[in-house]
Design a protein around this nucleic acid. Structure first.
Lengths: 233, 233
DNA sequence: TTCCGAGATGATTATGGCTCATAATCAGCA
DNA sequence: TGCTGATTATGAGCCATAATCATCTCGGAA
């Protein structure tokens, strides 16, 4: 519709080409898998010659890493959007769990590629950043819950995170194997599970019941310790 | 030491060769990954010609499937052995969790290959049986717990299973990324988590109104959490 | 108009999975 | 113990495809 001739600078042209390659590569990788995808087909779909790809991405593996990285960045934005409306941490957790389970099932192929990828690259730093960003959406919710006193303060955040993402990923796999799709019960079960274990006051059944008589003196001890720490900042 | 000439029948010779190929393939696949592994090297290590491999395994993918399948069968036997001594279901669960986390960390490479594999095979039946057997070690323990009334009778077994294996697998990944190894706390945390949620009678604190008596303690919990975050800045 | 060089091209090379014509081996038999 | 047909092993070569590189294109500066 824009009648005006697009004044493409050199830099812009490069970016357009780069995006075209990325788009074509995404389609072909998803459809054919890593090994099945042929660079010739990607080049053809992007409307360039085969050799040109290598001016933008040194190898096939690097190209797929770029595709998968872009995917995670997009997914992170979507997850944040899904979580934003919820103020209550547990509602946010529920929303994130729903989003993640849905995403893993829908985009199973791409996510599968992500896991196969790191082994291929020499630098173990591959994808780390993107994955870390995605996963930290959970961390922020968990932190908020802790600040509001809805979660035990001594809970190890990373363990909770592992349970959350690990369970959902595994559930997605088994759901798909069984030929089923998204299952709300899985999400509910997981959120209740985490809630039960990380709720404050709920003394974990491992340690013995605290002696009520100790309560006031213990509280004062802890209070003094915290004040001391504050003073030292 | 056996002076006697081993009377190898044709069938026995075939089995020996098959095992030699499997062993060589396992080593090379682990060392080089699927794509990095060259059939020529596997053949060389097995002491046979390249073409001979194809008399035993039709393709490279089929060969790796055999390697991975044998691995899971062995792992299942080991897991059962680790669990056997424990009569109490929760002790058994703890033992299984320890074993699994250890195994996933030690054999991360092979297990990673397993996940990359199914996508490569046309038949979706690939590996299903072996994985199902391995995973059912958990199921048996959970069932026993239910029979003895230690676990809510209405609990969905497969969801518990997903949480168990999913959490451990994901934990193993993050532990390794962090350069750490086996961590007993992860196992303890998970077992307590499952115990808290699946114990009978324990109504999950869905929306438990906070007991006013807990207020001071909760306040300090929150204070400690905030200070901890402040310190980490 | 000529010239330049960054950028694009695709024929060519290198690699590795897989095939197949041929050779080696073996059990059964006289 | 030699003969024989069937079974099993071999590795040079085929082919698909990732990656390379000599060559070409073309916008813009002189």
């Amino acid at each position: 519709m824009s009648r005006q001739r697009p004044p493409l600078t050199r830099r812009e042209k490069v970016e357009v080409r780069e995006q075209a390659i990325l788009d074509a590569a995404r389609d072909v990788f998803i459809e054919q898998g890593y090994d099945g995808a042929r660079m010739a087909e990607i080049a053809h779909k992007a409307g360039i010659a085969e050799g040109t790809i290598y001016l933008y991405y040194r190898t096939k593996t690097v190209l797929m890493r770029a595709v998968v990285g872009a995917f995670w960045i997009r997914l992170t934005a979507d997850a944040e959007a899904a979580v934003r409306p919820h103020d209550c941490p547990f509602e946010a957790l529920q929303a994130l769990a729903r989003f993640h389970l849905q995403a893993v099932i829908e985009r199973f192929d791409v996510i599968g590629l992500s896991q196969a990828l790191p082994a291929k690259l020499d630098e173990p730093t591959a994808l780390r950043g993107e994955l870390r960003s995605y996963v930290s959406v959970f961390d922020q919710i968990f932190q908020r819950g802790r600040d509001r006193g809805l979660i035990r303060p001594n809970a190890a955040l990373w363990m909770a995170r592992d349970v959350f993402y690990g369970s959902l990923e595994y559930s997605a796999r088994t759901l798909m194997q069984r030929g089923e799709t998204y299952d709300a019960d899985v999400v509910d079960n997981l959120v209740r599970l985490i809630r039960a274990h990380y709720a404050p006051g709920t003394v974990s059944p491992q340690a013995g019941p605290p002696d009520p008589a100790d309560a006031p003196s213990l509280l004062i001890d802890r209070l003094e310790a915290v004040v001391t720490r504050l003073e030292q900042l």
